[in-house]
Amino acid sequence: MLADRHPDPLSQVLALAGARCHLTGKLSASGRWALRFPARGRLKIIAVRRGSCTFTSGGQSGELRSGEAIAVNGAHPFVLRTDADVLPIDAETMTVPDHRIGTADEFSGIGGEVTVEPGGEALLVQALPPLMHISAAHPQASALDWLLRELDTEMGHDRPGRSFTRDQLAQLLLVHILRAYLAQPNALPAGRLRILADPRLAPAAQALHENPAHTWRLDELARLAAMSRTGFAARFRAVAGVPPLAYLTEWRMRIAAYELTHHDTPVGALSAQLGYTSESAFITAFKRAFGRTPLQHRHQHHDLHRAEPLA
């Protein structure tokens, strides 16, 4: 089962969400310019290799310098610019992957976009704030700077294995961005990622992720967090947005949905692996979460993929 193959919770979340970071292009620019990016409901990453610009999104703004990045969750459009008086160009009208504005390379940036499987938005994108700025002073900045240099090299040279290498580096870019988020738990909205970043609650949350089949009791989880039952329950609900046992049920259902669509595990076996004493209890819980039975969920997924046109 997936929970056994990915021991740390963030890896589990990324796997269950089916998160993939795709490089969307490189921007080289000089002079006065401004680009507007639409709200697409996807996590978008912009990282600067050289130069600087300002960013504006959803009422937030700031300066983006060399070695820094922003990540936006797609809820609002955003603008990158070097001059407030320049009217922004729609970035989607620039149809080639390597964009150029002007003749010099005063500014160089790399863009990436994260796609998720159906249901992955709730696990990942909705658990993030609308915008986060990873500054040069952030602990992740040195790793990000190395990664940007590697991406810049791979995108600028036609070398063997370039497509595979770019894909792997793009995944690393996503992980470093998420690690930066997790280092600032107060910047995260209530939800799964924030609880994984909470130093008091993380041991209990990790236990729920690692052993979802266990019949967890509130006192067991409180002991893992070195807190009283009352204090633990209140803090957990405030940070996760749901009580501990509701969090566990939701996590079980996420695992179940993944297993049903990625493997051929029988429903009865899956219910036992997730700690349900009967198949009917599991089916009832799954139908309450997704509005359909486990087999309906599996068949719907398979029918959808059979209907997709070949590339």
Rank of each mutant, 00 (worst) to 15 (best):
V13H: 00
I70F: 03
E210I: 00
H209V: 01
D219C: 12
E92G: 06
R40V: 01
R50G: 10
L27E: 04
T277Y: 07
R288D: 13
H297L: 12
S271D: 07
A19N: 02
V116P: 00
A311Y: 11
A84K: 07
R223C: 12
W251R: 13
G31D: 02
A226H: 13
I45K: 08
T103C: 03
T265V: 15
S135F: 02
T115Q: 06
K26G: 02
L23T: 01
E106N: 08
P309A: 07
A213F: 06
Q12Y: 01
E210P: 00
H302S: 09
A84L: 14
L245S: 04
L224W: 09
F107T: 02
Q140I: 13
T115A: 09
H263L: 09
Q171P: 01
R20A: 11
F286A: 12
V48P: 11
A143N: 07
I70Q: 08
G161W: 08
G41Q: 13
A205Y: 01
A307I: 00
T95P: 00
Q300H: 14
T293V: 13
R252N: 05
L245K: 09
R100Q: 14
T284V: 13
R306A: 09
R200N: 03
V72P: 05
E106W: 03
D105V: 06
P7L: 11
A222S: 15
V79D: 13
Q273T: 04
L147Y: 04
